[in-house]
Write a protein that binds this DNA or RNA. Structure first.
Lengths: 145, 145
DNA sequence: CATTGACAGTTAGATGTCTAACGATTAGAG
DNA sequence: CTCTAATCGTTAGACATCTAACTGTCAATG
């Protein structure tokens, strides 16, 4: 009655990624944000005055989706769109003070989940895992956040 | 003393997950699936006859969300819900032939990326990684075979 | 049996997101 | 200057997802 192991490392990684996504979901849901909204809000705190077209490229979505998304954030006062002095067809987007404060806790909250996810591993195993993951990511394109 | 290491394992995992997510996004979008739908469809091919409550636990969402999600998949003929012989209040969910075929293409497409992602590792390192990932995921809600 | 409470699933309503079509503005060529 | 094409952004309509309230079923207790 042995069970053959059909689970590849890739599937395990996907699975962990899913769990992380869900962990972050709890945090952002308490703030009534969607994944996309939190991502864009985080991007705006690091790139104040970005224009919508750049945000669309960054999030790999369309300009229309960014427009809708920003409408939602603006309605809640988390984001501001101001006309540009140079060109009348672009709008520069800024996270408001409230927006910055809301998203600022996200990264630290995510750091707290590390302990939970790595709980089954000994310190030595964690070091080994960290080594292997570093090797893998050393040849990957960097995420934009 | 603090090591000059700015990247935690969690961040590395998130990073890998991000790359995988983006890689799969194009494939999924061509089939008009959402991430959640593809995840559930994949789960159903591995766990035929699962009940909705288990799917909800697995995806960490509510029974209501699963209900809506399955309605969308059922409308497109990718999934089937049949009454259970034992209990009248549960429905067993199955991926249809079309559903299995649709998602199996995803697995093969994703499998191609495994080589790319694990390229920097030797066979021994891959085995070690697989072992560590298995330990991590063993304490997470998992499809029971 | 009858009642009660837990359980599996659905529906209603609100919000978010996506695709397609549509204004509006700018730069460049004639 | 005027026309055209590219660029930036919005709107409309369809679908997906979530929360809260709901129906129907089972099982335990008396």
């Amino acid at each position: 009655m042995k069970e053959p192991d059909f689970t590849t490392s890739l599937e395990l990684l996907r699975w962990i990624g899913w769990a992380q996504r869900k962990a972050g979901e709890d945090w952002i849901r308490e703030r009534d944000l969607s994944h996309e909204q939190s991502f864009v809000l985080g991007y705006l705190t690091q790139n104040p005055g970005a224009i919508q077209r750049d945000i669309a490229a960054m999030t790999r979505t369309s300009a229309a989706s960014v427009s809708s998304l920003l409408q939602g954030l603006e309605r809640r006062g988390l984001v501001e769109r101001r006309a540009d002095g140079e060109s009348a067809r672009i709008k520069r987007v800024y996270a408001t003070r409230a927006g910055v404060e809301l998203i600022s806790g996200f990264d630290t909250a995510m750091a707290g989940t590390e302990e939970v996810i790595l709980a089954p591993l000994s310190p030595e195993e964690r070091a080994t895992l960290h080594d292997l993951l570093t090797k893998i990511t050393s040849v990957m394109p960097r995420p934009t956040r």
